[in-house]
Design a protein around this nucleic acid. Structure first.
Lengths: 156, 156
DNA sequence: TATTGTTATACTCTATAACTATA
DNA sequence: TATAGTTATAGAGTATAACAATA
């Protein structure tokens, strides 16, 4: 008798013939993305100093780029939804790095702006942020870096 | 007099001469990685069904691959530290998808294994997981997919 | 004693839904 | 009605530190 509907023990089963195609976690793009993101997060934490997270830095960098902005728009400009941007802004505000002001023309809105202290900190961190980008891409040569960024941008 | 140490207002300043190099958030690899990961997470949630997260699925897929494993080793095999794997295993155990047993030979260790229900669910989810990988890579042609995975693997 | 494994705690990011207020 | 924002809730990943068991 051959009851080959399914091997009772799955480990290390070789796909001999018409078996289910093997699913190897290590080859899945989602898993690899998580690993690469983890490595980036580690590099970020090591090099940034100043006890700030990648998303908090994204907000400070964007505010440096564009100046005071609506909280909601700031979220869209940093790829965070309303709840996420609120939490991030709250934490930055508690540390005095940003200030939140009512919008005179639309009382639903909040305007978020860097404080003087926040702008100063952004100036300090900016070169470190460049170093972080460089360190993250260090395993790749210049041509590969361009390729990678192009491919990732197609996927976002 | 020219007090050009620093422009008081930073927004939209053009890098005219020897100014600080511009830092554009949208061009930073860490930020793009977050966006791509977000898109993958959205696809995962839409297609997986069964109310399971990417990390939970990673654990189930790995247990399907290798069979019962030490909790700590399982964490290393799924790129999670000891605290993270514990939380994930706890949630899966609470739903009856994995069981946690003491190791007879080393009482520090816990053995984690899929339950029958967990193995069944993994079988159901596996083709969907393949679809998720496919959908995540959909913007790329076959050559680009190979390139991307090679480049990402260099960076992990 | 040094190492390994597990657990407790705290913080952050994320998503969803319910709710308020405004245009 | 559609938009903007807040709040509550829940889940998830991470780091740190404390603790237990082993070599």
């Amino acid at each position: 008798m051959n009851t080959s509907k399914r091997a009772s023990a799955r480990p290390r089963e070789v796909a001999t013939a018409l078996e289910v195609p093997p699913y190897v976690l290590d080859d899945q793009v989602g898993y690899i993305l998580r690993q690469v993101s983890q490595r980036h997060a580690t590099i970020f934490t090591e090099l940034i100093g100043g006890d700030i997270t990648p998303t908090q830095w994204a907000v400070m960098a964007k505010l440096t780029e564009v100046g005071p902005t609506t909280q909601n728009l700031l979220g869209r400009q940093t790829s965070m939804d309303a709840a996420t941007i609120k939490g991030v802004v709250d934490r930055l505000a508690k540390r005095g790095l940003v200030e939140v002001l009512p919008d005179a023309t639309d009382s639903r809105r909040l305007i978020v702006a860097l404080t003087a202290s926040g702008a100063e900190m952004a100036d300090t961190l900016l070169p470190r942020a460049c170093t972080i980008t460089e360190a993250t891409l260090a395993p790749l040569d210049p041509a590969e870096r361009t390729q990678l960024l192009q491919l990732l941008c197609k996927m976002r």
